[in-house]
Nucleic acid binder design. Structure first.
Lengths: 201, 201
DNA sequence: CCAAGAAGTGAACCACTATTCATACCTTGA
DNA sequence: TCAAGGTATGAATAGTGGTTCACTTCTTGG
């Protein structure tokens, strides 16, 4: 054999792969999942349809990778928020605020990640997405329970419930454009945690 | 003209329509949305494919009608639970319990109604579904706030959040089969409402 | 019984897209 | 430069499943 894949070629291939993912993100953010057809992605990435399949075995894998990438980004942002100083309750509120603020800044993308109908393989990634958020919140709750600022509770359940609550409350604003009653989320969150500063009777 | 649609014919058509809806419910409950193809529905209903279109302008409309019917049933059950004696908090818990118990009894159906990917037109019905639940809960919360057993709050937001929380917590058990930590939902609900008997600090 | 007209049928049609693959074009090391 | 082998292409393919429509069957009132 004479041909060997050199770093130069590898770099070109990597950048093509990145271009495909970028185009897909862009399409997901502007037209939603429906606009993310393989042909459209390829066109926007400046490659041929077939080239997409040199990097991803199927469309589902492409979108799953997409989700993974976006989710990592979001989870990192939320984790940063979770590490700010303050009580466990305050930290969970910070997570919720960060989550909501970022979602409202990129509504179409957020809707796609949160709720838009997708094929089953991609749905699996969405579950990972939600679980990652849940885990970030659950970790804070566990801390709060340990240091006594939160009442004893099943941290994963409360955390899952808060994720669901936030997602549910956001879906209206995300699809309609208005901010709705998102501003009340912190109070709800504190109450749901059983935090002492939540104004409970 | 000689032909007129008589009550007898109308009755036959009505029962055919009902048969189609029944078959669709059955398929939705056993194979999920994916198993609900028009051909399969027609076959199970014992009619021709084309006959489906004599009753529904499109598959989306058929499924939307299906959703409407199922949602009405569920909302009625939940409303009954909401009218049992007790404090506002207890009533909301009764709603949540009823919702969860019924969902666990028909997991595939519940998953289809709650979370399974569907086309956009059907998604609209799902939103109606969730809003109906929200409204039932919000009404109890408003009562509780008025009679002082619950702290002042935006009832619709708390209600939406509780719906989202319940849905989120249920999705795991619904897809995996196990009951998970659903048993903790009442405590969470009471806490989220800010009810006095929730064991808050 | 019959003509008018409606209801019922289901195979064929069609739109939509993910996927393939024969072909053209590049890259490499000798 | 050249042969070997890889990479890129995009038109064609294929599977899916909703929808149609020419045709058959049934119903009605005279």
């Amino acid at each position: 054999m004479v041909y060997r894949r050199t770093p130069k070629v590898q770099a070109r291939m990597d950048s093509q792969r990145a271009a495909i993912l970028d185009a897909a993100v862009e399409l997901l953010a502007t037209r939603g999942y429906a606009g993310c057809s393989v042909v459209a992605v390829a066109q926007d990435a400046g490659v041929a349809t077939g080239s997409v399949y040199r990097h991803f075995p199927s469309k589902a894998e492409l979108v799953a990778e997409l989700f993974r990438q976006l989710v990592t980004r979001e989870v990192e942002a939320v984790e940063r928020a979770a590490q700010q100083p303050g009580s466990a309750g305050e930290r969970v509120v910070a997570v919720v605020d960060t989550f909501a603020a970022r979602a409202l800044k990129a509504p179409t993308l957020a809707y796609a990640l949160l709720a838009e109908p997708v094929d089953t393989p991609v749905e699996a990634e969405r579950i990972v997405f939600r679980r990652a958020f849940r885990d970030v919140i659950a970790a804070r709750i566990t801390e709060g329970v340990r240091d006594g600022t939160l009442p004893p509770q099943q941290a994963p359940l409360t955390a899952a419930a808060i994720v669901g609550a936030v997602a549910e409350v956001m879906i209206g604003p995300l699809t309609s454009g208005s901010e709705g009653a998102v501003g009340e989320l912190p109070t709800f969150t504190l109450r749901a945690l059983g935090a002492p500063d939540a104004g409970n009777p």
